[in-house]
Design a binder for these strands. Sequence first.
DNA 1: TTAACCATGTAAATCGTTACATGATTCA
DNA 2: TGAATCATGTAACGATTTACATGGTTAA
Lengths: 177, 177
Amino acid sequence: MSLRHAVLGLIAELEGASGYDLLKLFDLSLANVWTATQSQIYGELGRLAADGLIRVAAEGPRGRKEYAITEAGRAEMRRWLTETRPRYLRRDEPLLRVFFLGQVGADTAAELLDADSAGIDGLLDELVALDERIPWKEDDLSFYGGLVIEYGKRFMEMRRDWARWARGEVEARAAGD
Amino acid sequence: MSLRHAVLGLIAELEGASGYDLLKLFDLSLANVWTATQSQIYGELGRLAADGLIRVAAEGPRGRKEYAITEAGRAEMRRWLTETRPRYLRRDEPLLRVFFLGQVGADTAAELLDADSAGIDGLLDELVALDERIPWKEDDLSFYGGLVIEYGKRFMEMRRDWARWARGEVEARAAGD
DNA sequence: TTAACCATGTAAATCGTTACATGATTCA
DNA sequence: TGAATCATGTAACGATTTACATGGTTAA
């Protein structure tokens, strides 16, 4: 139940956030880490409130609801962080394709690897732009958020370098080993 | 629909595989790339057969069904590889926790990052052991499978190095900046 | 003979995506 | 006044996980 804790955690960090705020925050802060759709967020907010982990602290214009975490919610965040083990689930669609690249010709395979490194380069650019847009402070969220941004950069550089290397291997093999 | 193409692609590479074979193959070959449960595999095999992309080529003891890809199935694999764009979906539960590590103390944060690098080290060991167990050949599957294994190694090394670095940052900050 | 392994299938619940639906407020 | 943005919610479908359920074959 990671989405639940992503939502709960964001509310813990930013008291007074609404579903709409959270939706934008997912893109801004958690984009490399966890994605969520609008429909998931509103659904989860309802369930978290029903379970007493958050509450509606205020209502604003246009039906806006501002949420606050409850004591039970904070306890649940600590429990999740310290008493459960995360799972390393690996699912990577571009990489899945690489595994089956023998089913098309070497030219096509090289093209697809080029497209992959170009795609990753684009993501890296986005991440750098994001980094520059964030008003970094001295608080915990900025500190740990910064560690995560650094991870994203390292990941994408590694990934891009690998795709370029792999493309070279494909070319060398096609050129007659 | 990546699971569908993972199953279809494996059958294309290894004619005569059964659901049970595929289940083990997912662990052996696609572990870093895509995971699947038994229940997903049998369900997808049924749907692929109903759609005419694979067929039951033989039946063995214990109700074993050996599948073969059809011409329509091969065409679908090529279409998927060349005419669709993969999505870069990022969901990483250990990393999600890092983002919220301000909600526990610095000691706990450091411990959790230690556990992360230890966990990754374990995965890296498994991958190296897997690499040594595979009977590498000169065919396409070995070649592209090898590129994917190399990716897995680079990924885990990067990830472990990052976790160690991050742990150092947490310590330095706790020690008074 | 019994434990390990081979082998398939279904059911229920949860999670995730896409699309639909509605309306208020702000600002140019 | 009209476009952009703020704001919430539901419905339908598809994907994933976990558990249940069953039985055949092989080898020590």
